[in-house]
Design a binder for these strands. Structure first.
Lengths: 254, 254
DNA sequence: TGCCCTTACGAGGTCTGACCACATTGTGGA
DNA sequence: TCCACAATGTGGTCAGACCTCGTAAGGGCA
C-alpha cells in the first residue's frame, strides 16, 4: 500500500489553530477587540474542519484570549488582561484552595502593586484615582455603587503599577473573590472609614511615597480581610473537614 | 406550533459539562489522577453529544484541570497546581507582556513565598530543601542537572509557604520563563556562587527567619535577573496615548 | 522457555454535513 | 412613523463514520 505520507501537518489540529492565531496576534494582524472570520470560512482557509477549528477557539476562549458571542462572532479579548475567569475557581476546587489563601495572595500582591504605583504612576492615573475616591465618598450611602468605584480604584492602581502581569493576576483573584465581597459590602456600615482609607492611599501614591502606599494598602486590606472573616485560621491539626462554602455557580454574574 | 419547551437544561452544554465535572471534583468523587469514563460512554450518560462533551473537556484541559492522553484516556490533573501552561504566554503575547515584567512578578512573589516558608515550613520541607541544596552542589559542573534541582528547590519553597495559590502562580510564571532560563544556565560559569546562595536561603528558612529568607531570596533573584538581562529598562518618554507600537516580543519567543 | 513482533482493541482525534439557536438587519404593514 | 416579522449571518449542537495512538494480548521464532 502506498505510504505516501505527504504533508506533515505538524502537531495536533488544536495547537495548529492556537499557534496560527497566536502568530496573528504577535505580528499585529489581530488586535484586542478585533473579530476573526466566521468559523466556516476560517476553517476552510486553514484547510481544517470546522470542528477542529472550534476546538482551538475553545481553548483560547477558556484562557480568556478570545471571546465568543453566540450569533455575533468571535473576537480577540479586550479590556483588562485576565486569566480565565473560572480558572482560579476551578483549580481551587481541585486543589482545595481556601478563601483566606486567596485573600492572603491578594494582600501581598496588591500591597506591592500599590508601592509600584506610587513609584511609577503618571498624572493620568492620579487623576483617575482622585475621581474614584470622590465617587466613593459620593456613594457612601449606597453599598452597591460604592463597590463599583472601589473595584475601579483598585484596578487603576493595578494599571498604574506598570506591571500588567501582576495586574492580570490580581484581576483574576479579585473576580474570584467578588461574590463573597459583594455580600460583605451589603452589611458594611462604615463605608466612610473605608473611603478615608482609600483617600490616604491615593495621597501616598500621588506623592510617590512607595513605602507608605504599600503599608496603607496592606493595612486597608487586612481590615477588609477581618471584616470578611478571612483570616488565616490558627495553626491546628489537619482538619480539612471544614464546612465547604458552596460557591455560587453563576460566579461573576453581571 | 408546539413550542413545548420542556426542560431547560440550564446553560450551554460546555458549562453543563464543566459544572458537572466541577461538582464531581468538589464532592470528592473525582480526585487528582483519576480517570474519567470514555468519551462515548460519558457523553451518553450525560445525554449530550460526544462533540459537546469534548468541548467541555477541552475547556477544562486548557486551564490545566484535566489532562488528555491520546489513546489512553482523560484524567484529572495531578502534580503541582498550575494555570494553563500556555496561558501566560498567550495572554502575554496579546497584551505585550515583557520579560522583565514577568521576572519582576517572580521576584515579588517568590520573595514573599520564601518569607512565608520560613514562618510556616515544616520539618519535611527542611529535609527536602537540604537534599536539593546538596544535589545542587553535586551538579555544579552540569548546568542541566543543576537547573533541575534549582527548579525543585524553588518549588519546595512554594509548597512550604502554605499558600497553594501563590505557588500555582509562581509555577505558571516559572514555566513561562523556563525557555530563556535554560539558555542562560548553559553559559553560566559560576554555579557555585548560586549554590551557596541557595544554601543561605535554606538556612534562613530552617531557622524560621522570615525577614532574612525574604531578603536573601530577593537578592538571589535580582542577581539572576541581571544575569539574564531582564532588568526593567530605563524610564523613557512615552505618550499616554498608547502609540500602538509593535509589541515587543517576550524573550520566550520560539 | 523466553523474547519479540504482530495483532486486536480501547480510547482519544478528526471529518462531514445537517440542523438548531441567537442577534442583527431590513422591510412591509398598521 | 413605528412596530412586527422575516431574512440572514454566525456560533452551538448533533449524528455517525473513520483515523491515529497506546497498550495489552497472542503467536511465532530462537
Amino acid at each position: 500500500m502506498p505510504r505516501v505520507k505527504e504533508e506533515e501537518p505538524t502537531t495536533h489540529r488544536t495547537m495548529q489553530v492556537v499557534n496560527h492565531i497566536r502568530s496573528l496576534i504577535e505580528n499585529g494582524t489581530l488586535q484586542p477587540g478585533d473579530k476573526i472570520p466566521p468559523e466556516r470560512e476560517f476553517a476552510r482557509s486553514l484547510k481544517i474542519s470546522r470542528a477542529s477549528l472550534r476546538t482551538g477557539i475553545g481553548y483560547l476562549a477558556a484562557m480568556g484570549v478570545m471571546k465568543v458571542r453566540h450569533g455575533v462572532g468571535t473576537f480577540v479579548a479586550d479590556g483588562p488582561p485576565e486569566f480565565g475567569k473560572a480558572s482560579l475557581s476551578l483549580i481551587g476546587a481541585l486543589h482545595g484552595f481556601q478563601s483566606w489563601q486567596m485573600f492572603e495572595a491578594r494582600i501581598i500582591l496588591e500591597s506591592h502593586l500599590s508601592g509600584l504605583a506610587a513609584e511609577r504612576g503618571k498624572e493620568e492615573h492620579h487623576t483617575a484615582l482622585a475621581e474614584e475616591v470622590a465617587e466613593m465618598f459620593a456613594a457612601i450611602s449606597s453599598p452597591t455603587d460604592y463597590l463599583i468605584h472601589d473595584l475601579l480604584f483598585h484596578r487603576i492602581i493595578s494599571q498604574a503599577s506598570g506591571n500588567p502581569i501582576l495586574a492580570a493576576i490580581i484581576e483574576t483573584i479579585t473576580s474570584a473573590l467578588y461574590d463573597s465581597r459583594r455580600k460583605t459590602v451589603e452589611r458594611a456600615t462604615d463605608l466612610r472609614e473605608s473611603a478615608e482609607m482609600h483617600r490616604e492611599i491615593f495621597r501616598a501614591i500621588r506623592g510617590h511615597k512607595a513605602k507608605e502606599a504599600h503599608n496603607l494598602m496592606e493595612q486597608h486590606l487586612r481590615m477588609a480581610q477581618i471584616a470578611q472573616g478571612m483570616e488565616r485560621p490558627k495553626e491546628r491539626k489537619r482538619s480539612s473537614a471544614a464546612p465547604k462554602s458552596r460557591q455560587a455557580r453563576t460566579a461573576t454574574a453581571a
